[in-house]
């Protein structure tokens, strides 16, 4: 993320869309709504332009710094969450579907063999 502009009335950041999706950006700025209002625009060729404007008359230096820190941290955190969500959505659906499968339609046998790692054979 690069800082494009930083004044008392406006903060602008450029975010590479190959790294951070629109979803990740929106989830990040959602939590910053109490301290600024945001606009997101496409910034050709492959970036997003995030514009922050103060909720009050102007930004203090402290708030400007806070927004930048929170944006940087939020983008990384929500990117990680997004990756987890993408990778686990099928398993999550299976967990929930099976949890409420009252009739046992979704019952499946374990796919692997039952193992006996300590070599205990009660038949011997």
């Amino acid at each position: 993320m690069d800082v494009l502009a930083s004044t008392d009335e406006l903060l602008q950041f450029i975010v590479n869309e190959d790294i951070y999706s629109e979803t990740v950006i929106f989830k990040t700025i959602y939590w910053l709504a109490p301290i600024a209002s945001f606009d997101i625009l496409k910034f050709p060729p492959k970036s997003f332009l995030i514009t922050a404007r103060p909720n009050t008359a102007s930004f203090s230096e402290e708030i400007k710094k806070e927004i930048e820190i929170q944006l940087r941290k939020g983008l990384v955190d929500f990117k990680v969450r997004d990756l987890i969500n993408q990778e686990t959505s099928s398993v999550r659906s299976m967990i929930i579907a099976k949890a409420f499968d009252n009739d046992g339609f979704l019952d499946i046998e374990p796919q692997s063999q039952i193992s006996d790692p300590i070599g205990f054979d009660p038949t011997r």
Binding site: D116, G119, F120
Partner: peptide, 11 residues
């Protein structure tokens, strides 16, 4: 499956 194991020793 159980009888396919080789020994009782920890590996």
């Amino acid at each position: 499956i159980i009888s396919n194991t080789y020994s009782r020793k920890f590996r």
